[in-house]
């Protein structure tokens, strides 16, 4: 009975909770809008709004922070991480969803722990190892570091999509003589396309916004946008605050675009729900 009245909600409480949530959301939005407004302002010391508006900070940020280069690096790193994560994660998700084998729960755990341990905790030993092998400070070092949370994440997102597909479809293909590999490419991959897209976009967003791992492993030539943003904020006062804000808006636009696309494919609450339904 979807219709049934919720017997437990005194109305006043419900409105109070909704009011609190709205207050929270409004504050978050104002925090974001602050950045946008400031990035277009000439000077903003007193008053609700800057004295005048100008787009010039975007041009300055583009030059000063070498954003062209930073964006190029970000795109290269992100695409590499997405491609490798899907290439490695989709088959692993398939095996975990379809096959029963000894030590499966151990492997599940192996894929879950990197998602739950905060990156800064394992980032330092990881950076140590990467610097010793010479990968530290290079693009490949950043890509490798970002695989640690991305591959398990791709596995986690893909698993329900694979479980939805009737195993008899594969059986049918194999009866007609297709090998396992052919089955995978000709039957499964096309059927899984929505899932692969969703996982790809989500990995993309996570990689663009992954600060800690990139920060710990990137050299001067392999900084992504978020790390460049951090450095420019850290060196506050060296550049105009507004050009830092302009850079932040550019960063925001890239992630939000990804998020909007991703939300067309996945329900955010389901994703968080997937994490919890796994045994810890």
């Amino acid at each position: 009975m979807d219709f049934i009245r919720d017997t437990m909600l005194p109305r006043a409480w419900r409105w109070f909770v909704i009011a609190c949530m709205v207050f929270f959301v409004i504050n978050v939005l104002l925090i974001i809008i602050s950045v946008v407004v400031s990035s277009f302002g000439t000077g903003w010391f007193t008053g609700w709004l800057p004295e005048q508006f100008t787009p010039k900070w975007y041009g300055e940020a583009w030059k000063e922070f070498q954003l062209q280069h930073v964006l190029l690096v970000t795109v290269e790193i992100t695409l590499a991480v997405v491609a490798i994560s899907l290439g490695v994660g989709v088959p692993a998700a398939y095996a975990l969803a379809r096959l029963q084998f000894k030590g499966k729960s151990l492997i599940m755990l192996l894929f879950l722990v990197p998602l739950m341990v905060p990156p800064i905790t394992y980032g330092i030993p990881l950076a140590t190892v990467l610097y010793q092998t010479g990968a530290g400070g290079t693009m490949w070092g950043v890509i490798l570091a970002n695989l640690v949370p991305s591959v398990p994440f791709a596995v986690l997102v893909m698993t329900p999509f694979i479980e939805q597909i009737d195993p008899r479809l594969e059986s049918a293909a194999r009866v007609f003589g297709a090998s396992s590999l052919t089955t995978f490419w000709r039957i499964l991959v096309p059927l899984l396309m929505p899932g692969i897209l969703a996982a790809g976009i989500l990995v993309l967003i996570r990689t663009i916004s992954m600060f800690e791992l990139t920060f710990l492993t990137a050299g001067p030539d392999s900084q992504t946008l978020i790390v460049a943003l951090y450095y420019s904020m850290f060196a506050a006062g060296v550049r105009a605050q507004q050009s830092v804000d302009a850079m932040a808006v550019i960063y925001m636009l890239t992630t939000m675009t990804g998020l909007l696309i991703a939300l067309r494919f996945v329900d955010p609450s389901q994703l968080v729900g997937r994490v919890k339904s796994q045994k810890v």
Partner: peptide, 28 residues
């Protein structure tokens, strides 16, 4: 839930940037 994913997606660095302006003595 859609609105709440936004701060999660933006990440700590951007939220910090916004808070620097929002919480400032002359902030909103």
């Amino acid at each position: 839930s859609t609105l709440l994913v936004i701060p999660m997606t933006l990440g700590t660095v951007l939220v910090a940037e916004g808070l620097m302006l929002y919480l400032a003595p002359n902030g909103w």
